[in-house]
């Protein structure tokens, strides 16, 4: 028997063993993967169950009943809002910072600045009518975008 034959034989066997080993390993990994998939889908299913339970617990009807029974709070009303300028004047001893005047000017909420509200036509038709008594802060690009941001936030849209 020639040496080269033996060598080839050895290599062939080695290849065979490696192949067998690899395929066995693939099989093992597949089984593991399948087991993982099952546990993931089980986990997902239980998350779904919890979500559903959360949905049931958050029924507005139920929350309202619970809030009435256990909270000393009630839904807010529009009349409970106040404006900065409606606040009582500060005590005289307190120094009013210079920036305060500016904040007062811009803090006034006024959505009219961002929506399509053309000036009331009525003023054109009726020149003797007194001016509408709502002072509107000047619309600059900065205030406009800031308000838009507030409005978007208030809508709860991301």
């Amino acid at each position: 028997m020639r040496k080269s034959t033996l060598l080839w034989l050895f290599f062939a066997t080695l290849c065979g063993i490696t192949l067998f080993h690899t395929s066995q390993k693939v099989h093992d990994e597949r089984v593991k993967l399948a087991a993982l998939d099952v546990s993931i889908s089980k986990e997902e299913e239980s998350i779904r169950v919890l979500h559903t339970e959360w949905g049931y617990l958050n029924q507005p009807v139920r929350l309202e009943k619970l809030a009435k029974a256990y909270l000393k709070l009630a839904p807010m009303k529009g009349s409970q809002f106040a404006r900065v300028e409606d606040l009582p004047p500060r005590p005289a001893t307190v120094q009013v910072p210079e920036a305060a005047a500016e904040t007062q000017e811009t803090a006034k909420p006024d959505i009219a600045a961002v929506t399509v509200a053309p000036p009331p036509i009525i003023k054109i038709l009726k020149p003797e009518a007194p001016a509408v008594i709502r002072p509107t802060p000047p619309i600059t690009a900065a205030t406009n975008s800031r308000r838009l941001g507030d409005v978007i936030k208030s809508l709860g849209v991301e």
Partner: peptide, 19 residues
């Protein structure tokens, strides 16, 4: 209030009546 719409407490029926 839920949608944080600032109320306008100044404008009353007198304004629209005048207009």
């Amino acid at each position: 209030p839920l949608y944080q719409i600032p109320p306008d407490l100044e404008r009353g029926r007198k304004d629209i009546e005048r207009e």
